[in-house]
Nucleic acid binder design. Structure first.
Lengths: 223, 223
DNA sequence: GTCTATAGCTGGATAGAC
DNA sequence: GTCTATCCAGCTATAGAC
């Protein structure tokens, strides 16, 4: 027999398969080739189901990107909480990057970001999904920079946005790089390594450094 | 009368109008909406001309992006040559960003980069156009870092790629940002300002800094 | 809830008139 | 060199059978 619950669960199943299929299509074929037919055939159902369940293709993309980003961010929230230095943060970024090749949430965001430049309906869901990442990055940065000479010298909110934007740009560039090019993340690792080492300076050098930073702070307003 | 030269010049005119129209379409409507019909109507000519002049839409995009990037890079080559510090480099990036709103070469590259993730035919022309930028950035960075403590500590080629990738990510993020968000470039300016100030350290502090950097250099291989 | 069928577009690409 | 005409594939969105 077919109860209301069976129907509802079967309906949810198709609905979720459509979300999964939508993300896979963006990731593997690019935002330009996301169409109702294409996504539906991946989900193994009919095109019309998209309009039944979501009303439009855009609403499907909105739902799918938000849900998957939420899941992805939640798993990283724990890991971000254990990070204790910029060095570890970049190392975590490296792990993330490796997992990206498989799961591709950032890849999806990059595609939506590109699409959102000119597609009004894509803008809001993209901004919302991005904000989920930015919020986590910002919280981590704020924690790391607290009680360091850098605190107060840097606009952490803006910095978190810059870091997120850079990460997306790096993901995009990796996507078309030949196999022999150095990974942009490795370079970043070098830089942060350097920065950290400088900040860990002890003794006379460290004192001089912190004094100089105080000078920067005091004259920070006028450039 | 109609001489062979007249014909050739009229042909070139249409050909170039098509290139201009292709770029405008990518910039204003996004890579997803670039179609032969769409571009041709912008150029004020018939769709079939694209296949006559370029053979395919992809070849039109290849030609257009390379030509426009060459022009754009050439104008910046001069300005990059006058840059004397990281601070000035970031300031120039700010100017570039402002001009981008009007001319949009980086916007075009960002769109092609997004498209190139999944479209084989777009990959090569995108990589070629990007390489034009990366080459200039790399030359400038190499010049700036020469004779500083950073020389030899950083993989300049990789760094130039990272910087370029980050710039593109930033352009993309600006494209969907609300008006009240801080520009990621401003944050970058803060950071580089800080870095420069540190590198300009004189006296005891500077000596300690350079000593520490030497230590980083010597242990640079094993992390 | 899921399907088929359909309307009405837009797409790439080519053939052939001029 | 540029046009019209054309083929056929794919698209969104809806109507309506089951």
């Amino acid at each position: 027999m077919t109860t209301a619950e069976d129907q509802s669960s079967r309906g949810n199943d198709t609905k979720r398969r459509l979300e999964v299929a939508a993300l896979a299509t963006i990731r593997e074929e690019g935002i330009a080739r996301v169409s109702a037919r294409n996504v539906a055939s991946r989900a193994g159902c009919n095109q019309a189901s998209i309009y039944y369940h979501f009303g439009s293709l855009h609403e499907l993309l909105t739902a799918a990107s938000l849900r998957s980003t939420e899941v992805r961010v939640a798993t990283y929230r724990q890991r971000l909480a254990t990070v204790d230095s910029l060095r570890e943060l970049v190392a975590l970024a490296g792990e993330m990057h490796a997992e990206e090749r498989e799961l591709g949430n950032v890849t999806v965001l990059a595609q939506m970001l590109a699409g959102g430049q000119t597609d009004e309906d894509l803008r809001e869901p993209t901004a919302a999904a991005l904000q989920l990442w930015i919020t986590e990055v910002e919280a981590t940065l704020r924690r790391l920079l607290a009680d360091t000479p850098l605190e107060g010298l840097i606009d952490v909110h803006g910095f978190a946005r810059t870091v997120s934007a850079a990460f997306i740009g790096i993901e995009l560039m990796e996507g078309i790089s030949g196999p022999n090019e150095p990974s942009p993340l490795d370079t970043l690792e070098q830089l942060v390594d350097l920065m950290e080492t400088l900040l860990e300076l002890g003794g006379v050098g460290g004192a001089a450094l912190r004094w100089q930073m105080g000078r920067v702070r005091r004259s920070g307003g006028e450039r």
